[in-house]
């Protein structure tokens, strides 16, 4: 048993190997790898005795799970009614141009994933952009660059100590 399987096994054991805890287990795997690797799902299926297709059904039903590798940073642009009328689509367009990807895709260097959401429930501060759980209120096209820059910067800061 290699390290990866050991890790997934620990996630399963954390929830007492219960079938009902499938979503929690998948959330743990998603948190670790940023997506659900096929091998991990097969292992979960064998260990819990749930048919693989049922796990896939759950994993594809919820948007928080992904079967494709996601980027380091998750950029979510709100497309709810309030954000939409205040220029949400234009902000999305700007993100798409800056990152060079379409909504729902991930950049080639696996740094950013771009997604849209129907409503975040904070329409008063719209248009809203969420990056890794940080909310950016009253965004406009000019702010897009600086938002992305802060996350690019964080990458560089993280990398520098390793290089030294």
């Amino acid at each position: 048993m290699n390290a990866e399987t050991q890790k997934i096994k620990s996630f399963i054991e954390k929830h007492d190997s219960k079938k009902q805890a499938l979503i929690s287990i998948l959330q743990d795997i998603q948190g670790e790898y940023n997506y659900l690797p096929a091998e991990a799902l097969r292992f979960v299926s064998q260990t819990l005795g749930i048919p693989l297709i049922d796990i896939i059904s759950v994993a594809t039903f919820y948007r928080s799970f992904s079967l494709e590798p996601k980027g380091e940073h998750m950029v979510t642009v709100c497309m709810g009614t309030a954000c939409h009328v205040r220029g949400g689509p234009k902000i999305l367009e700007e993100f798409e141009r800056k990152l060079g990807i379409e909504s729902g895709e991930t950049t080639e260097d696996k740094q950013f994933s771009l997604e849209t959401v129907a409503c975040l429930g904070c329409c008063a501060i719209g248009p809203v952009v969420v990056v890794d759980g940080n909310y950016y209120s009253h965004t406009n096209i000019r702010k897009v660059g600086s938002i992305l820059k802060t996350y690019h910067k964080k990458e560089k800061e993280n990398e520098q100590p390793q290089e030294n």
Partner: peptide, 9 residues
């Protein structure tokens, strides 16, 4: 068998 099932939504 449990070969096929619903996916996405």
């Amino acid at each position: 068998g449990k070969a096929i099932g619903f996916q996405n939504r």
